[in-house]
């Protein structure tokens, strides 16, 4: 049963450390259901790390993450993920359709083959992102934007309620950007919650109705209209808190973290 009144994502006291140096520090956040949430912040602010830590791809030093009030492992099928395009080898011998069908593997289950029924589902998803004509192409023959759309389609076949997208707009053509944002709007209308790591500040107000401004910690969060203001931007992008940095470096050296 899909219950959208339950908070789709709640993070409490999340701290993540790489090599004992904290990358994310004490993140507290709750996402309102049915919104497009943009995650913005400078390079190295821990945006991708946040998503990976939420999805348990990297270990957390401390903290708790609940999705729809439950642990992630219990609601995996309701959570979709679009990783960064660079994270895979695009020379891999699979077609666009094969990649999209991977989103169904969880529903297909162990040992069973990908039957024509599932391929049909994958084709429909490809059609949604305007890539049906390229279904049988080997993935290295697609342009960057087309590859991104294939990844998006792979998340769509899962029909999840909560999506995480890691920089889907990075290095894509205008057509892809438009296709992606149309899909995002559709998802929102269907009452789903989407988190998008985003770089382009010019389009923030246009694309997202909720913002999470991140720089190692949550600088500001809230409806875009309220928080997308200069003082918050200065806090987010205006460099780190030097004293805190020094202390965290000292912690790393002494080995307190992790």
């Amino acid at each position: 049963m899909k219950n959208n009144t339950i908070i789709p994502l709640a993070i409490r006291d999340l701290t993540v450390a790489y090599h004992r140096k904290p990358v994310l520090w004490d993140i507290d956040f709750e996402a309102p259901a049915g919104s497009l949430v943009g995650i913005i912040g400078p390079n190295g602010a821990g945006k991708s790390t946040l998503i990976k830590a939420i999805l348990e791809l990297i270990p957390r030093a401390s903290g708790e993450v609940l999705m729809f009030g439950k642990n992630y492992s219990l609601v995996r099928q309701r959570v979709g993920y679009v990783p960064q395009r660079e994270s895979v080898d695009w020379d891999f011998p699979v077609s666009a359709l094969d990649v999209v069908a991977m989103g169904c593997y969880g529903q297909i289950g162990w040992f069973r083959r990908v039957t024509s029924k599932w391929r049909k589902v994958a084709r429909e998803a490809l059609e949604r992102v305007g890539m049906l004509d390229y279904a049988d192409r080997q993935i290295s023959q697609l342009s960057g934007g087309q590859q991104q759309r294939v990844f998006l389609a792979r998340a769509l076949v899962q029909d999840a309620d909560l999506y995480f997208m890691d920089e889907p707009f990075a290095g894509v053509d205008a057509a892809t950007e438009k296709a992606i944002i149309t899909i995002l709007q559709e998802l929102k209308k269907a009452g789903k919650t989407v988190f998008v790591v985003h770089h382009d500040l010019q389009t923030v107000t246009e694309y997202f109705d909720y913002l999470l401004m991140l720089n190692m910690r949550v600088v500001a969060e809230g409806p875009t209209k309220e928080v997308f203001r200069e003082e918050n931007l200065v806090k987010t992008y205006g460099g780190r808190l030097t004293l805190l940095d020094e202390a965290l470096e000292a912690m790393r050296k002494r080995g307190t973290m992790g």
Binding site: D13, D26, D28, R217, V218, V219, A220, L241, L243, L244, E246, A247, A250, M251, R254, T256
Partner: peptide
């Protein structure tokens, strides 16, 4: 930082031990 008052103790506690004189 935007940290609620009831969270302060925990965070400060993790930092106080590594703070030397100059810091």
């Amino acid at each position: 930082m935007n940290v609620p008052v009831d969270h302060l103790h925990y965070q400060a506690a993790s930092l106080e031990h590594v703070t030397d004189e100059s810091l």
